[in-house]
Simulated scan of single mutants.
Amino acid sequence: MTNKYILAISGNDIFSGGGLYADLATYTTNHLHGFLAVTCLTALTDKGFEVFATDDEVFDHQLNSLKDVPFSGIKLGLLPNVRLADKALEFVKEHKEIPIVLDPVLVCKEKHDVEVSALRDELLKFFPYVTIITPNLVEAELLTQMTIKTLDDMKVAAKRLVNLGAKHVVIKGGNRLSKEQAIDVFYDGKNYEVFETAVLDTNNIGAGCTFASSIASQLVLGKSAKEAVAVSKEFVYQAIRHSDKYGVKQNYDEK
């Protein structure tokens, strides 16, 4: 373990596949000392998979408790509402000199369109202060308000996100464009890089969280944004490929 400290501002995943569990596991794998500010709890209820936002005052206390920790990096995951996102933004502004990764989680089944729109507008405010954003295709569509069907569409969306203030963008295509290849597009405002790996037939959850927290870890360890994405793409691929060795996979329809 190094003396580098890295923060995850993210939510609890009751199934322990994504969210803060993925963040801490990834930090530990990279020999970094991970800290947490928890944004929400999750659970299966009679209404399905639900997200319960952390109380505003409690979230404030968490961030205030961490204000003097000399963080070398921050990863932001699920911010369940505008109030908590605004509090996280103020914390980010105070740490804008360090690498910061924003995974702009926007799609929750219990959110209404009005809530998603308000949260979208709030997340756009983060763009000038973070190093890289890591939306999946659906999140990229919501942020850019365009439809993404092809690799060229992904490149157009990445450019739009930079025009909206992002410094670097990686759009996670998953297997939506191809059933054989998982395609991601990185853009730094000048050049595009397309990353492809074979699609693996698994039921794992948390790959997006792991990808973002791995990028944050690699930035803290001195990699450039493009290098961090390349290393993290391979890291997630290998983690999924070998996941059967370390636990029982389960298919949760609610996820």
Rank of each mutant, 00 (worst) to 15 (best):
L161F: 13
E193S: 11
G222F: 10
G173R: 09
G222I: 09
N204G: 12
G165T: 04
A216W: 06
K155C: 08
Y237R: 07
A230K: 08
S217G: 02
V156I: 06
G173Q: 10
D188H: 13
G222L: 11
G206W: 08
I183F: 06
V229H: 03
V231F: 04
V169Q: 12
A216P: 03
G165L: 03
S217H: 02
A207T: 15
K223I: 00
V231I: 10
V169W: 10
K190Q: 14
F211R: 06
R241Q: 06
Y192I: 15
L221Y: 01
C209L: 01
N163Q: 13
N204A: 15
K223P: 00
F195P: 00
S232H: 07
G189L: 12
V236W: 03
S224C: 06
C209E: 08
G165Y: 03
S224E: 05
D201R: 15
E193Y: 06
G174Q: 09
A239F: 00
A228N: 03
Q181T: 12
V236E: 01
V162D: 01
L200I: 15
V194N: 09
H168F: 02
E234Q: 13
Y192E: 12
A207Y: 11
E180G: 01
V220F: 04
K167D: 05
Q181N: 15
A216E: 05
V185Y: 14
G222C: 11
Q238W: 04
N175A: 13
A228W: 04
C209Q: 05
K190C: 10
T197Q: 13
E180A: 14
T210Y: 00
V185D: 12
N204E: 15
E227A: 07
K167R: 10
Y192F: 15
V170P: 03
A182I: 10
M154E: 06
F211H: 04
N175Y: 09
G174I: 08
I183G: 03
E193Q: 09
V194T: 15
A166S: 11
L177H: 10
I240C: 01
Y192W: 13
L161K: 01
S214F: 02
N175W: 04
L161D: 07
N163R: 09
I171T: 09
E234C: 00
E234A: 12
V199N: 10
R176A: 13
F195G: 01
A216K: 05
I240G: 02
S214E: 07
Y192N: 08
F211L: 15
V220N: 07
G189N: 07
D201F: 02
S178E: 08
V162N: 15
V194R: 01
V229N: 04
K159H: 10
T197Y: 06
N203C: 05
V229C: 02
N175P: 00
